[in-house]
Every structure is written in structure tokens, then in C-alpha cells.
């Protein structure tokens, strides 16, 4: 994806109101815009403290994105460094129409995907056993039960949140990556397809299978251990 496409996509996300970071009240937003404009001016002037501020303020959130995609701390740290190196180089072309945080988010996602592609391909486990099965006549082979009442309370428990994160981590990589991009990093189908170099339809198929597999894992674990 080009820098222009990155920024344009980031602007779209801001218009949709789904960019990283909470929306504030008008006054707070105005202050933040002024603050960001000042930071951008300082960065363009080569102010060392502005670069340090950018890395310290944005680094943690971007490191979390890299970890979600790479599942390896060392690779995530390398990815963060690569992200900022790319950002510093691209800064003169950054027009400032998108938020810096949104622009950096797209850069770190692409840097992480590049790193994933560079990894030696590992054989993936099959996802089939986590997908629903059907009789010849199209009826499901099992009757599904609704465990959603009570799920809100469960989410307040760190052990359950860890269980959910572990269930995501255990998805086959090609499916997990799509789920992370679409459902956690909030890229739309076209953005995820462009980032992964696959068709939008392939994104939809993998996403649906990934969600089904995640649902099945949570169904088993939550009903066994937490929901009567």
C-alpha cells in the first residue's frame, strides 16, 4: 500500500469515527488538533524532543498492535522499530489530514504483515474440526445453545479475558490474521484484502471461518468452566 493510500484510508477511518483513540468533546478535540499540528510542525523541523514524544506517546499502543499480529515480543519490538523508521522517512509526505495515530497504526499493521510474510511458512493446523457440521439434509448435527446471558459478567474477569485471547491465538495463522485485522484492528474488507494481497471474497471466507472457530472454542471453554 502506498503512503498516499495509507493516509487516504486513515482519513476514511476518521470520517467513519472508528479511528484509534476515543472521540472527545469539541473543545478537547480542538485542543488535540492544535496539539497535533504543533507536534507535526516540530517533527518536520527535526526537533529531537518531538520525535521522542511521538515514540513514547504512540509506541505502547503500536507495540500492542504488533504483538497481536505477530504473537512474539521480539518480532513485535523489531516491527515497532521498522514502523517508526518508515514513518520518519515518510513524514515529509504526510499531509496531516489524517491523525498521526491513525497513520502510524496503518504503518505498523503493514510492517507486521510484512514480517509475517517473511517468516518461514509453518504448517497450519486444520480449522475444520472447529466448524459446524451438517447432515445430508442441511440440518445441523448438533443443537446450539445460547450462552450469551452472563457473558458480560464473565468479561470482567481477567482469567476469562485471557482465555478469550488464548482462543484467538490458537486459530490457524492465516485465519487469525484476518480476524485480528477485521475485528480487532477494524480494517474494512477492502483494506484487509489490500494489506494481505488477497481478494475481498477470500477475506470474507477466512473471517467467517475464523469467527466460527473462535465461537466454537469459546462455546466449549465457557460452557465447561464458567457457564452452567
Amino acid at each position: 500500500m502506498t503512503d498516499g493510500a495509507l493516509e487516504s484510508s486513515a482519513q476514511d477511518r476518521q470520517r467513519r469515527g472508528s479511528g484509534p483513540g476515543p472521540a472527545g468533546a469539541d473543545g478537547a478535540t480542538s485542543n488535540r488538533v492544535d496539539d497535533e499540528a504543533a507536534l507535526l510542525t516540530a517533527l518536520r523541523a527535526g526537533d529531537e524532543r518531538a520525535f521522542e514524544r511521538l515514540v513514547v506517546e504512540q509506541g505502547g499502543r503500536l507495540l500492542a498492535v504488533a504483538r497481536r499480529l505477530l504473537r512474539n515480543d521480539e518480532d513485535a519490538r523489531d516491527c515497532l522499530q521498522e514502523c517508526f523508521v518508515q514513518a520518519f522517512r515518510a513524514l515529509p509526505r504526510f499531509e496531516g489530514q489524517a491523525k498521526l495515530s491513525t497513520w502510524l497504526h496503518r504503518i505498523v499493521v503493514n510492517a507486521a504483515l510484512m514480517k509475517l510474510r517473511g517468516r518461514r511458512a509453518r504448517p497450519e493446523g486444520s480449522i475444520e474440526s472447529l466448524l459446524p457440521s451438517f447432515h445430508e439434509d442441511g440440518h445441523s448435527t448438533v443443537s446450539f445453545r445460547d450462552w450469551t446471558p452472563g457473558a458480560d459478567e464473565l468479561l470482567e474477569r481477567e482469567e476469562v479475558r485471557a482465555l478469550v485471547r488464548a482462543a484467538i491465538d490458537q486459530l490457524p495463522e492465516s485465519h487469525r490474521t484476518v480476524l485480528v485485522l477485521r475485528d480487532l484492528e477494524e480494517l474494512d474488507t477492502a483494506e484487509a484484502a489490500a494489506a494481505l494481497g488477497i481478494s475481498p471474497n477470500a477475506v470474507k471466507i477466512r473471517l467467517h471461518r475464523a469467527r466460527q472457530a473462535l465461537r466454537q472454542q469459546l462455546d466449549l471453554r465457557l460452557r465447561e468452566g464458567y457457564l452452567a
Partner: peptide, 26 residues
């Protein structure tokens, strides 16, 4: 209906669990 509800809820739980994870400090 139960499958649809739990499919939706799985997405929500994934978002909630990730959003609540501590942000690492570089």
C-alpha cells in the same frame, strides 16, 4: 438463533478482551 447470538458475542468478547489487555510500555 443461538448460533447467531454466540457468533456475535464471540466477536464482542474478542474485542473486549483485547481492549482490556494492558498496553505495553516500550
Amino acid at each position: 438463533v443461538a448460533y447467531l447470538a454466540t457468533y456475535r458475542e464471540s466477536i464482542r468478547l474478542a474485542r473486549g478482551a483485547e481492549a482490556a489487555a494492558p498496553v505495553p510500555e516500550p
